[in-house]
């Protein structure tokens, strides 16, 4: 029986003054007990939740571990996290949090569970995920596992900017913006995201992706710049 909380150190290690009197602070690391993809995904979601609840400065760079009585401790280093995300986006059948799946159905949404679902969304802009994964892989992660609205919007805007640059350079025929019948990068990554969302049965992500894609296209058509 130990006192926890009270003090906490930020990402720079400042303010760490833990004691049995005032508390052991906030968690210094997170761990899972099996190396299964399901549990590792739960670990990434737990990190996202802690970041949403405690603040990014207290969770940035927090170590992720596997602790198993038979093999001891293993470290999910940054390099392994990148490999894990690549595997998740390319080879793993995406899935929702099993504890939330039945509480966030299209016809029956529990408010508390939906709030948790929002807190668990991955931030593609954080931890250099965008630098490691391709835009298609990011879209699949967003569709299959869920990502924050801001990071998905950034992904779509970047894709649209790339499309414009291609047009300007004459790499592709001029097309009408917003015409989805033509093959462009924006359409491609939205399709990737939608496919992943269908695989995991995430109706909310389907709506968000479609809405954000249409907002992006419509804003561009009207000449409005999106600031996110």
């Amino acid at each position: 029986m130990c006192r926890v909380g009270g003090v906490g150190s930020n990402a720079n290690g400042e303010g760490n003054d833990i004691s049995f009197d005032d508390g052991l602070g906030v968690p210094m690391a997170l761990f899972v007990r099996t190396p299964s993809y399901g549990d590792l995904t739960a670990l990434l979601r737990l990190r996202a939740r802690l970041s949403a609840v405690l603040g990014k400065e207290y969770v940035r760079g927090i170590p992720l571990l596997l602790i198993d009585p038979d093999i001891g401790t293993r470290i999910l280093t940054e390099e392994l996290q990148k490999k894990l995300l690549t595997t998740m986006s390319n080879s793993l059948n995406p899935f929702q949090n099993p504890h939330l799946k039945h509480q966030t159905q299209i016809n029956a949404v529990s408010e508390t569970h939906f709030k948790q679902k929002l807190e668990e969304l991955l931030d593609l802009d954080d931890d250099n995920i965008r630098d490691v994964l391709t835009t298609e892989e990011c879209a699949r992660l967003a569709g299959g596992y869920g990502a924050t609205d801001e990071s998905v919007a950034h992904l779509l805007i970047d894709a649209m900017v790339d499309d414009h640059e291609e047009e300007r350079n004459g790499d592709r025929k001029q097309h009408v913006v917003g015409d989805w019948s033509q093959n462009n990068k924006l359409q491609h990554i939205v399709n990737e995201g939608l496919s992943a969302a269908v695989r995991s049965g995430k109706f909310t992500v389907l709506f968000v992706l479609m809405t954000l894609a249409w907002i992006t296209v419509a804003a561009n058509t009207c000449g409005i710049s999106l600031v996110l």
């Binding site: 993809y37 392994l80 894990l84 899935f95």
Partner: peptide, 16 residues
Amino acid sequence: LALEAHNEFSELLLSN
């Protein structure tokens, strides 16, 4: 796809 949630991320086991 090739992998399911119960499959193991075997590379993590080597990170001792």
